[in-house]
Simulated scan of single mutants.
Amino acid sequence: MTEPLYLLLGDNAFLIERAVGQVLAAAGRDSGEPVALTRVRAGEVTAAELAELLSPSLFADSRVILVEAAGEAGKEPAAIITSTLSEIPDGIVLLVAHSGGGRAKSMVGALQRAGAVEIDCATPRWPSDRADFVRREFQATGVRVSRDVVELMLANVGSDLRELAAAVSQLVADTGGKVTEAAVETYYSGRAEVRGFEIADKAVTGDLAGARESLAWAMHHGVPRVVLADALAEAVHGIARVRGLGSVNPQSAAADLGMPPSRVKKLQAQGAAWDAERIGAAAVVVAKLNGDVKGQAADADFSLEQAVSAVANLRPRRGRA
């Protein structure tokens, strides 16, 4: 049964839209007919418009109202939203999409105290978070997969949640639920995005010529620059995290790191030649690259070339401290 109040907490557009679709479908099942969705942006809607939307309907029509970007709500709209939370009229389902920050940050607490059903819509920050997302997507279809399958999915598909969700659905459908490492490799063999991880692996192992060659191929074939930057960042951060644990068994460290043991073992091998100072410098390089490929640099291609070269050159050579 549909609840009257939902808090969509986070900033990921795909997760927010999926949550809205699920609530809308549930409301339609409850009423026995399609339910209209009304969208309002918190920073633009007037107090009068919002009050009218949240007022009881004379005909008891079912309505789903989505308040977008609630963190940016003005003082009056924010006050109307919070004052309505305890007495939402029958037939109205209120969804409040809130990033968790913004000038109306206090609204989150008010929604939680009012008993809002909270749906996590935050963009995963770490590789382990994305691995959890993929695992949950498979579980939602009734399919259990190994850690290595999850790792391959992330390596082949990338970090975009919409693409990951679609890939999980497609793989489950095409394999009848028998999703193995071989199935993932067969399905995604030749995907250009794989090059991002090839480039990153070559860079962190000091193969400058190989990294440059693979980067040129990827850019020529239109691989998104953000994908390439993310792959390099994940390789550098992965080495930093594994080095921080010291000499540990990959099997025992896998759960703490949120990685398959095979990935831990690979990062241990890659990180053996790195020292703390150089991996710290590499982390600074990929942090700057993240901003550059998202619009802060005039030439993202040049930034990528410079970052890949910098990471490869930072990797200590044999005989060099």
Results as ranks from 00 to 15, higher is better:
L111K: 00
G115V: 12
R135M: 07
A182Q: 09
G271A: 11
A166Y: 13
G101L: 11
C121T: 00
W126S: 08
I119V: 14
Q268A: 02
A166F: 06
K178C: 12
T141D: 00
E3W: 07
N249T: 05
N313M: 15
A297K: 07
T123A: 10
G115L: 07
G32P: 02
D207R: 06
R125H: 06
A69T: 06
P56F: 09
P4T: 01
A310E: 08
P56N: 06
F138R: 04
G295W: 03
V40P: 11
L228W: 09
T46P: 04
E44K: 14
R41S: 10
F59T: 02
A70T: 12
S303W: 00
T84G: 12
E68G: 11
G109A: 04
A48V: 12
S189N: 08
A182R: 15
V286W: 07
V145A: 05
I279C: 06
A26Q: 13
K202N: 01
A165H: 14
R125D: 08
E198M: 10
V242Q: 05
R278I: 02
V143A: 13
T186M: 14
I119C: 08
A255N: 09
A298V: 15
A307F: 09
A131Q: 11
V23F: 03
A298M: 13
A276F: 10
A166W: 11
K266D: 10
A240N: 07
F302D: 12
